[in-house]
Computed example of a mutant assay.
Amino acid sequence: MKQFATSLMVVAHNYTELGQYEKSEEHYLQAIKVAKKLEDSFFVAMIHHNLSITYSEAKRPQDCLNAIKHALRNKEWCGLSYYINSLYMIAKELVMMGENNKASYYLKKGQENLRQKQNKIYEAKINIIHELSQSPLNERVDRFHSHMNRLAEQNDFDSIRDLALITSKKFEERGFYKEALKFSNKAILAEKKMKQLEGI
């Protein structure tokens, strides 16, 4: 049964990659039902976390938050390296929704976790989300570039693309069009780098 649920997760992930979010959600929800029958709460938490990524891609922020919070209710999940990923995801969604005060709670939790368990990639990602929650944004351009350069050192161009697009959108919302364009270009360059690394 666990193998079946895992297969459903793989199919769901593939649907997300193809942008078929409803089909992906369908498979994840089916996998959750199976995991619940197995009474495997950690597995249920893992599926919810993966489902939250689909909701994020599908621009369904509230569903994304609900799915992450479900994962965060599992103590075993919170004791492992996945925890920082969930904290980052929830902070990112909240900042994108303009809920900066709520985001700061999860950013602090993330920073506390990183003090105990070093992770250069998540340190840079959490720092970028933290900068996005502050103002004035136009005084933080160098910091954004610095954190993104750290991600480039780790070859994490996927995160650079994602975060550069979010950063560009935030600058555009506040009327800083020149900066918005710079980060939009940074996302395009990161996409090219990803393709080079994948040999496409």
Rank of each mutant, 00 (worst) to 15 (best):
A45I: 07
V141Y: 05
D156K: 13
A164L: 05
A45P: 01
K170M: 14
H147T: 00
A190C: 10
N127K: 12
D162F: 15
Y55D: 03
Y106F: 15
Q116A: 07
L197G: 03
A180R: 06
K170G: 01
G110W: 00
L51F: 09
E17T: 03
I160D: 00
N74K: 02
M96C: 08
I188Y: 13
E17D: 05
L29N: 14
F183E: 02
A124Y: 04
E39I: 06
M96I: 06
H49C: 06
S159R: 05
A91T: 07
E172C: 01
L51R: 10
A180Q: 10
A164F: 02
S159A: 15
R150Y: 01
W77E: 05
M46K: 09
E179Y: 04
S184N: 10
D162R: 07
N113L: 09
R73C: 11
E123G: 01
L114W: 08
L29Y: 08
S41L: 09
D142L: 05
L72M: 11
G98Q: 09
E39K: 15
Y122T: 12
L38D: 09
A67I: 11
S133N: 12
K193R: 15
L189T: 08
S104V: 02
I126Q: 09
M1A: 13
Q116G: 03
A152Q: 13
A152S: 15
A58N: 05
Y15L: 09
Y122Q: 13
T167W: 00
L87I: 04
E93H: 01
S24G: 15
Q116L: 10
E123L: 07
K178H: 13
S24M: 13
I84Q: 04
I121V: 14
E139M: 08
Q20Y: 14
Y105C: 07
L72S: 02
R115Y: 05
E179W: 00
F43L: 15
S135Y: 12
S159N: 09
N85G: 01
I84H: 04
Q134R: 11
Y55V: 04
K2D: 15
N119G: 02
F176D: 07
K169M: 13
H48L: 06
A31Q: 06
Q111K: 13
E99I: 04
I188E: 14
A71N: 05
M89H: 05
P136T: 08
E17P: 00
R174P: 05
M9V: 09
D40C: 06
H130M: 08
N127D: 15
M89A: 08
M194C: 11
T16A: 13
S133H: 10
F171T: 01
N127S: 15
K36E: 15
N119I: 01
H49D: 09
L163W: 07
A31L: 06
F171I: 06
K195C: 03
K182N: 04
K102Y: 10
L38Y: 06
K108R: 11
Q111R: 07
F157M: 06
E22G: 02
K120N: 11
A164W: 02
I128W: 04
E131M: 03
I129S: 05
A152P: 10
N14F: 03
E198G: 01
P136F: 13
E123N: 09
E123Y: 11
S168N: 02
